[in-house]
Design a binder for these strands. Structure first.
Lengths: 137, 137
DNA sequence: TCCTAACTTGGACTTTGTCCAAGTCAACAC
DNA sequence: GTGTTGACTTGGACAAAGTCCAAGTTAGGA
């Protein structure tokens, strides 16, 4: 993730300790954290970091395309640091666990022009749903 | 949508005026409303209906499979009355407009067993993203 | 070392959704 | 038709997630 810090610096970012810590948290565990979870982990390294800064920084990382926002459940947004390899998500309906998955083929190919209603379609987010081994009855 | 009221009655629902109004709102315009939008429209027909009842009723309709919950943006959940024909959604990144679309093929087929991590995968929600004709530059 | 625009802070505020005790009423039995 | 009762509704308090802002701090160039 030092790459990330490099890229951010190259884009004219001021590298504050707060931004560094947020980047480290996202890099550290490759999971899908909510903003509050990022904040809780960031506080462990930098106790005075504020919620507002975490929200700001996450928003900026998303705008730069360095982090993806995932909305799988209509509750808190989750942040996915794996922005540089195309992937989709598999979510357990029982416990909410999320895995990155890589379906084959191009999902856009399944949407015929007649079903595009004049939109310029640029991407597709797929959420596969099911039960993980631990939640299966 | 009188079918819907029939089905609900058959399931032992008490048909209150509040539930009737919520059902009518969902039936009336085939769009994807938030709970507050449903409430606003319901109030026009039944001024004293409460937010809590709208939330309760929407939740019940979802649990019964009569209405789908759509989470396209990590903000308010939207409610889709078109639950009886499988479909996906196309969302405008500019204005947030949502259309129902019908891609061909089975999205689950694109997810090989090796990418399922032991999950019992039961479905896939696809959100196609792009710009609608009005928002295209 | 200084300066300044960019960044951070904490707290107030908004939006979205949940919960609950008290009151109301649809549907059944008669 | 009337009475009864448990299911339903209400309003308001509460919680969770996110935004906004004025005031204070600081990274990095001059």
């Amino acid at each position: 993730m030092s790459d990330l810090l490099e890229r951010l610096r190259a884009r004219g970012w001021r590298l504050t300790s707060q931004r560094r810590v947020v980047a480290e948290v996202l890099d550290g565990e490759h999971v899908h954290l909510t903003a509050d979870e990022v904040h809780a982990r960031a506080v462990a390294h930098l106790p005075e970091i504020s919620r507002a800064t975490v929200y700001n920084t996450l928003g900026e990382l998303v705008a730069l395309g360095e982090v993806l926002e995932v909305a799988t459940d209509g509750r808190a947004r989750r942040y996915d640091p794996n922005a540089h390899r195309a992937h989709q998500h598999l979510v357990c309906s029982g416990c909410g666990a999320i895995r990155d998955v890589h379906p084959h083929g191009d999902p856009l190919a399944a949407l015929p022009p007649a079903e595009r209603f004049g939109f310029t379609v640029s991407g597709a987010d797929i959420t596969y749903r099911g039960l993980c081994p631990d939640c299966r009855p």
